[in-house]
């Protein structure tokens, strides 16, 4: 995952998180197509969680007079999602990447904003662990979720 420079203001950080949420929602489309049963239900639940973070961010950025970055018609996927294994691998990547944007919001936020960012980071990290388990990947965890290293 390439990392841009650390955001300097809460508005920049939350705009970055919003762009990541848009991309995550987009990615769960092709992911869900390749999954069945419990995996597909988990993908739907994950997508719904990203949608509600997106909605909250749009509201918050609008209310504070910040710039609300627009959603895009499509996002480049890192590899073609042709089967279940690729779908699960992409789901892990999407969650890890989104976690990184929420982590980047922690240093520049305080109070309730920071708590929201931490909750979002934690949710992404836990979903990444669940996807690793579904994919049979080990270890199930990484030492520093959301960290570029």
């Amino acid at each position: 995952m390439n990392r841009r420079t650390a955001p300097a203001t809460p508005g920049d950080a939350l705009a970055g998180a919003l762009a990541a949420e848009y991309a995550a929602i987009y990615a769960y489309g092709p992911i869900g197509v390749r999954l069945t049963d419990a995996d597909r239900r988990a993908a739907r639940t994950a997508e719904a969680a990203h949608r509600s973070r997106r909605d909250a961010l749009v509201l918050q950025l609008s209310a504070t007079g910040g710039t609300v970055p627009p959603d895009q018609a499509g996002y480049a996927l890192p590899f073609p999602v042709t089967d279940r294994a690729a779908a699960l691998r992409l789901a892990v990547q999407v969650e890890e990447r989104t976690a990184a944007f929420w982590r980047a919001a922690l240093p520049v936020t305080t109070g309730a904003d920071r708590t929201r960012a931490l909750n979002a980071l934690t949710d992404c990290a836990v979903r990444a662990t669940r996807w690793r388990r579904s994919a049979g990947l080990t270890p199930l965890t990484v030492p520093f979720p959301g960290s570029p290293t």
């Binding site: 976690a99 982590r103 980047a104 922690l106 240093p107 520049v108 936020t109 305080t110 109070g111 920071r114 708590t115 960012a117 931490l118 980071l121 934690t122 992404c124 990290a125 836990v126 990444a128 662990t129 669940r130 388990r133 270890p139 199930l140 965890t141 990484v142 030492p143 520093f144 979720p145 959301g146 960290s147």
Partner: peptide, 29 residues
């Protein structure tokens, strides 16, 4: 770790957030 993250100055918040999130993933694992 979540409490420490909430109370920390900005330059410590990212590490503490990662630690809180990591412990949540351990719980899952």
């Amino acid at each position: 770790a979540a409490k420490a993250c909430a109370a920390a100055p900005g330059d410590r918040a990212a590490l503490l957030g990662s630690i809180a999130a990591a412990r949540a993933t351990h719980l899952e694992a």
